[in-house]
Design a protein around this nucleic acid. Structure first.
Lengths: 235, 235
DNA sequence: TCAAAAGTGTTATGAGTACACCCATGG
DNA sequence: CCATGGGTGTACTCATAACACTTTTGA
């Protein structure tokens, strides 16, 4: 078959905004870029799309290269296309954001890249338009997490409700009433209580819970309301 | 400056899902494709991205070519990238959805394209993955309209509350209580009552309203709740 | 005068919030 | 034995939804 004539071809790339949560703070996984231009500057993990793969496959591949993880939560964010966003050559980049369990990651880290976790709030200056990508990802994460139980992706298999609350509080940079929070969460029936308690973070200890994965998948589309006054928090 | 070596370049395209509302039904603007492959089949309006324009600029240009309209509501939907979505040559297409006032459009229609409005529910078979694009756009429109006052973009400058309600009912394929609906809408203070009534659709006549554009822009991010039981309707 | 749509008023329910209080336990 | 965080109980508030009823006017 012939080709479309007279049209410009461009590079297609992926960039991944990789979020993690260490129990205290939201973190961002960055790498030191290995190629020119901007070599050795901090950057999102990314790469070019190959001729026989879709963007989703490329994002999966790139994420797996860096973290060794499969089946990670990955969602297309937006495509960035300023003609001069990469000064070297026109490159249209589709940003994906990923939510990973930081503890899983630590087991499998690949050392081929100079990767490092940064506090989201104290990240270094990033190359190109990566700063815009992170800001948009943050906004979308807030938006989506206000309605869908997406933040469980950041937690280990077993977690306590106070841990979950801390995560929400960091995402929305605010404090919630712990009594109302736990009730709201439990009322969704999304959590299965375990017999053990986490005794590290308090004297009384807090029960561990696991996600009811069946219910989680079935109800993923349903609106939640874990956070109070969502309209105010999302402005 | 040199270029990135050893990477594949691809075509970058735009496709626009153009929604309209004629007072009774949701409509979709389609064209008969002018080039091979799939020449003369029904297709979304689209085109290739030029070397010195962003995707947004390309979408604006393409929409303006077809409709003659500027300043139309246009939002990036998603980028579609199956390696074989276009059998002729690898093309990565970013879909945008547009909401236009169908009456505005009729004044300015360009006849260079074989364009036609179809009932959204009775659209013809579309080429490539355009069917997926329309379905996703419909889903996103429902989602977004449940929370943001986006549907005003489909109405003329002056409209009645029953007209607005019909629009919502078509979008969500359901019926609302008209008494509760009008109160909810008016309570947002987004509408300015006019002195005239529309007497075409009822004997009593319904007052016209105009959008309070200042308030509309200021409150665009705020969550609304025009539709009852949003979680049930959006599943 | 009556049918049909627009619009107002009234009430019950239930989710969301605030907050007093009890529980468990390590130091 | 008490400070600390985990967790339950309760009452108030307000948005929502259900629905009876009035208004307007063309045919």
């Amino acid at each position: 078959m012939t080709k479309y004539s007279g049209q410009t071809r461009v590079l297609s790339a992926i960039d991944c905004i990789i979020f993690g949560f260490d129990g205290f703070d939201i973190k961002l996984l960055l790498i030191q870029r290995g190629i020119e231009p901007e070599k050795n500057k901090w950057s999102l993990m990314g790469g070019f799309v190959k001729s026989e793969e879709s963007l989703e496959q490329a994002a999966d591949r790139i994420l797996q290269q860096l973290t060794g993880l499969n089946g990670v939560y990955l969602e297309q964010l937006q495509t960035f296309s300023d003609p001069h966003r990469d000064p070297m050559e026109r490159t249209i980049s589709t940003a994906y954001f990923a939510l990973i369990d930081i503890h899983q990651y630590e087991k499998q880290l690949s050392h081929d890249y100079h990767a490092e976790w940064f506090l989201l709030e104290e990240r270094p200056k990033l190359i190109f338009d990566h700063e815009d990508m992170v800001k948009l990802a943050q906004k979308k994460l807030r938006y989506k997490a206000a309605l869908h139980p997406i933040l469980f992706e950041l937690l280990p298999q077993k977690f306590t409700i106070p841990q979950l609350q801390t995560l929400y509080e960091k995402i929305y940079d605010t404090k919630f009433d712990n009594r109302n929070f736990s009730r709201k969460v439990l009322s969704t029936q999304l959590l299965i209580k375990q017999k053990e308690k986490d005794k590290l973070n308090s004297k009384k200890g807090a029960f561990y819970y696991k996600l009811n994965k069946k219910k989680y998948r079935a109800n993923f589309q349903a609106f939640l309301n874990f956070i109070p006054n969502p309209d105010k928090l999302l402005m």
